[in-house]
Design a protein around this nucleic acid. Structure first.
Lengths: 113, 113
DNA sequence: TTGACATATTCCCATATAGGAATATATTGG
DNA sequence: CCAATATATTCCTATATGGGAATATGTCAA
């Protein structure tokens, strides 16, 4: 079995860093493909292909305005990622607290090197 | 250029749902490979391979205890995902608010169907 | 209609998968 | 040392990829 398609869900779609860049860019403001091409350092066909993937999983919305297509990030579609990752928040809090306590020598006397 | 390796970063590593399941499972408690195999519905070699990927990107830590290997989620490594996704929080908040307002007919009178 | 502009799709290819099967490595008890 | 247990690795294959190049589609202005 090969890897799941990039279009299978948001997790797979955002694994590609360029697509995350595009989502960042399109969150602030609706943009045309040409503007995305200028902002990122990518060829137009590459941008169109990335947009296709993002659109397939609902991470962007598109609308036509004359000859141009305007894209915009659909932020709600990123929520599953946020939800999943935030379940680990209490664990890393705990972890970082332990590191801090160790650094302050709460339990063990500091081992000076 | 092919897709980036699953071991290239946390984003690529957690794109695979089984690996997310494993991380969930190992966040609560340190577990042996055998215990993971029993909990998930996967063959032992598959589990070992997933653990290899997770270890390569620092998402789990391993230690040996006798013949067994005990794995544990390294929650801090999930933070980049959380950080990135949370930058979109204000956008989806805004988005959901608009939906709510529209439903309540704040601006437009409700179109009754 | 035609030409220019904007975007999307197709074809190409090297590459990394995930799982299955088989096997290798490591550790312990006796 | 050997057998048993636990885990890791290797080999296999079908498949989806991302970028490059070329081309197709769509839309407007005149």
């Amino acid at each position: 079995m090969p890897r799941a398609a990039t279009t299978s869900d948001a997790f797979n779609a955002v694994a590609e860093p360029r697509r995350r860049d595009i989502l960042n860019f399109l969150a602030l403001q609706e943009r045309s493909v040409g503007e995305i091409v200028d902002a990122m350092d990518l060829e137009q066909p590459s941008v169109s292909k990335h947009l296709r993937v993002l659109k397939d999983v609902g991470l962007v919305q598109a609308r036509r305005e004359g000859r141009r297509m305007l894209y915009q990030t659909n932020a709600v579609a990123i929520r599953p990622l946020y939800e999943w990752s935030s379940t680990f928040e209490r664990f890393w809090r705990h972890q970082l607290l332990q590191v801090k306590e160790r650094a302050e020598g709460k339990k063990d006397p500091v081992k000076v090197n």
